[in-house]
Design a protein around this nucleic acid. Structure first.
Lengths: 102, 102
DNA sequence: CAGTATCCAGACCGATACTG
DNA sequence: CAGTATCGGTCTGGATACTG
């Protein structure tokens, strides 16, 4: 069960994963420790649970994020960056840096 | 005649300009000196003149690229990175770096 | 709280043909 | 060579409502 990138293609991920609306925001939040769906929907105005889940699913699918479900009531879920996802940290930092300096 | 980004928003550009199909490729090529439309269409399999021009127009519109037309026959046109566009060089480098290392 | 289902307007982009 | 016009299928993502 691995990414279906043979070979892994940064441009592809940038295009099809990071390029999707909300994805960069979501990743940035997760990096900051905002890693529960409830927090994440509230972190962006206009982001719906449907789209959030599409993004999270995709990020998990491409193994940038990892999902942990806690068997509690009410249910609790947390997402975190994987080692692979962390390789994009430099990119996220670069984006932050650009954002700050413009 | 300035970008209608108030304030300039890297995430927005990443989303709506760089996130579009072919755009990263086009920018990378222009950086390498492949800066004429004819060369650019040929540089990517599947890229059509229609889409190329949409991308170039958008890149010029957001002032990442600058266009120079030479009044010759046949017409010659060249695109180059602007100072603003160059600020994204670090991002492109970072992408190349990631690409190489994965 | 987490996640899914449906609807649908609009964006995206490939194919093709055409003008200056 | 550079650029535009048109058509049409596909994908995107927002609104809303619903399930476990």
């Amino acid at each position: 069960m691995s990414r279906e990138l043979q070979p892994p293609d940064v441009a592809f991920i940038l295009q099809n994963v990071l390029g999707c609306k909300w994805t960069l925001h979501i990743l940035a939040e997760v990096r900051r420790g905002v890693n529960r769906p409830g927090q994440l929907v509230r972190s962006a105005d206009g982001l719906t649970t449907k789209v959030l889940n599409e993004r999270l699913t995709k990020l998990v699918r491409f193994e940038l994020l990892e999902k942990t479900s806690y068997p509690e009531v009410p249910p609790r879920v947390e997402y975190q960056l994987t080692a692979f996802g962390n390789r994009f940290s430099s990119l996220l930092d670069e984006i932050d840096r650009l954002q700050a300096e413009l």
